[in-house]
């Protein structure tokens, strides 16, 4: 076994973080899949989502999920581009695009979750059209 090189000075933060986020995502992702298919409605109907979103734990879970998945996914895509010898302008363009698109979609997803209203569950039909 090789001893670890000093990971702080060698620019490998993103490499370590890719693994750390990956390991967290395993749990979140498989949980998400089971939850979203537990019944045919649970992942595909407004009321199921509305009911979950009454709990801030679910909101926080979803926001964590979107941030981690987006970071991990785009960092992975960047890693693929890095396998090719990019000219500096190409690297900068691609990196900027990934960051801009990633931020836009992350904010969009966050907005979707935060827009969902809080209602009294027993009378939710009356309070939300």
């Amino acid at each position: 076994m090789y001893k670890h090189q000093n990971s702080r000075s060698s620019g490998s933060f993103s490499w370590v973080f890719q693994r750390v986020t990956g390991l967290i995502l395993v749990v979140v992702m498989i949980g998400h899949y089971i939850l979203m298919h537990y019944t045919p409605e649970s992942g595909h109907s407004y009321d199921a989502v509305l009911a979950r979103m009454q709990s801030n734990w679910y909101r926080v879970l979803d926001l964590t999920f979107i941030v981690l998945a987006m970071y991990h996914g785009l960092n992975g895509v960047w890693g693929i581009f890095r396998d090719y010898k990019l000219k500096q302008w190409q690297a900068i363009t691609i990196m900027s695009l990934l960051i801009i698109v990633g931020l836009a979609f992350t904010l969009w997803g966050i907005k979707t979750i935060l827009d969902i209203p809080y209602v009294q569950t027993s009378t939710s039909e009356l309070l939300v059209k």
């Binding site: 407004y46 009321d47 987006m70 996914g73 785009l74 907005k111 979707t112």
Partner: peptide
């Protein structure tokens, strides 16, 4: 990654109600 982009798009009607 491609799915995640589509997913965020397809969840966006949540903002427009039931």
């Amino acid at each position: 990654m491609a799915y995640l982009f589509m997913h965020i798009y397809s969840l966006s009607p949540l903002s427009q109600g039931r």
